[in-house]
Design a protein around this nucleic acid. Structure first.
Lengths: 143, 143
DNA sequence: GGAGTTCCCGATGGATGTAGTCGGGAATAC
DNA sequence: GTATTCCCGACTACATCCATCGGGAACTCC
């Protein structure tokens, strides 16, 4: 798959949080985790990274939980991804410098560029809309 | 980096082999490995995969070595990549099927599509030309 | 102010994959 | 027949991924 499970879990949680953003409500780790069938103590780590990355805010204690800091339309998927998989810090540029390696390094750059273009061109809002379209389609199916 | 070292080493070797393809000559593992400063016994494994994938042919014994089966213009980078990193066979479709996961699966598909488009749109011939352009540019620099 | 709830933080462990090493065998040229 | 080259598979060291866990800090509500 194109996403690590860290990234996938984090994004899934964010879509859920995007859906309730306008209401000002919060969601708890355990809620999201059980709905999505992912380990709650693991999901917690992702939400922590997202909080440190300025994407989420948290509230402690009973009735606590997480919510988006910014509206979903202002959160780029690229931010989220780099926040979640960037914790293992180093992108090494090992630089073997024969011309053949340089050419491949250029191609690798094109690939990363293409990936980034897509991720920068997608917001949480859009993911949410796609989810809702999917739900609509499923509702149709049952009529 | 966007390529594993397996893939990178394999492609580097293929660029060298593409450069001498029209002469009908062969190159030996040890030659390529020492020029590119990569472990020869390791490179050997990649060339074996490429032979099994129908991209290279080999000749044994003294004066032996490897050569491309097809002209460089007929070898897509996508073939090479799937041959080199596809040996660990399974692309798993673990399919957690909440709508949120489905949306992400769709996005992952877009990403893979974009990657494949680039790799299918690039041939060994093109990589060779880029290398030669780079060599030209460096030659200029020394005048 | 005490109890329960929720987030917070770091340590730990197993499974898997990556990058390489190695020993010995088979074909070929000279 | 000997040296050279490719051929084949096993093995290891290390890192990274995917969690699991124990205990602490803030907060609500009674």
């Amino acid at each position: 798959m194109a996403f690590s499970s860290k990234t996938e879990y984090g994004l899934v949680a964010l879509i859920e949080l995007a859906a309730i953003y306008s209401s000002g409500a919060v969601l708890q780790v355990a809620e999201i985790a059980s709905r999505q069938s992912i380990p709650d103590r693991y999901l917690e780590q992702m939400l922590t990274s997202l909080r440190r990355g300025g994407i989420l805010r948290s509230i402690r204690g009973p009735k606590g939980g997480y919510q988006l800091v910014r509206p979903p339309a202002d959160v780029l998927v690229s931010e989220v991804v780099s926040c979640l998989e960037g914790d293992a810090a180093s992108r090494d540029a090992a630089e073997r410098s024969t011309p053949e390696f340089q050419v491949l390094h250029g191609l690798a750059g094109q690939l990363e560029r293409a990936r980034l273009d897509l991720l920068e061109g997608t917001t949480l809002q859009q993911l949410l809309e796609r989810r809702d379209a999917l739900l609509q389609a499923q509702a149709m199916y049952f009529i």
